[in-house]
Amino acid sequence: MANGYGKIFKDGVFFNNPTFVQLLGLCPTLAVTTSVFNGIGMGLSVTFVLIFSNLFISLLRKFIPQNIRIAAYVVIIAGFVTVVDLVIKAFFPELSSSLGLFIPLIVVNCVILARAESFASKNPPFPSVVDGLANGIGVTLALTVISAIREFTGNGTLLGFPVTPETFSPAVIMILPSGGFLVLGFVIAAVQFVQRKRRADR
């Protein structure tokens, strides 16, 4: 069984990474990754919601009627998103103002609904929690990578600390909306390149 959890974990974080491989939840991926701090904050919020929505959907999976399951999942997810929204507003007002609209929009993040539908609704609670954690880490990893590239090239800093010599003039376009599309395009291309290599090696 330990092996099973290992597989769930590796799939969620790497081989089936929700952002890079399944291409789910792209809106927050593009919108909030202008700085590493925002990226990690968003990733952790998504992870929290994923763990708890997976847990509760899995616990309730025998009681939710098939026909209205999506509506039921969305209500459960929306409940936890409201919790996250209120907690962030209370304790991290700075993060709340920079993520803004995208915190309540976690409700419609396809990653969460996809895990609910394809994993939590069919599996017992404990594996579902592991799956939620793994996918959450996958999302956080993806957001951190993209936001690190964008913050470094667009602002010359990492986590707010300047890391480039003063002669380096940052390409502001990278932290503007178009830079988001560009970086994500190149990162996904890199992921596809690695995937092809792995398949060819086998």
């Binding site: 376009i173 909306p177 178009s178 994500l184 395009g185 190149f186 996904i188 291309a189 596809q192 092809r196």
Partner: peptide, 22 residues
């Protein structure tokens, strides 16, 4: 180029459209 086929090239096209909208 093969790694760019599918979604990556679409994202890059979207980036260029987005620059136009700027």
């Amino acid at each position: 180029p093969t790694p760019f086929r599918g979604v990556p090239i679409v994202l890059i096209a979207a980036a260029i459209l987005s620059i136009a909208f700027m």
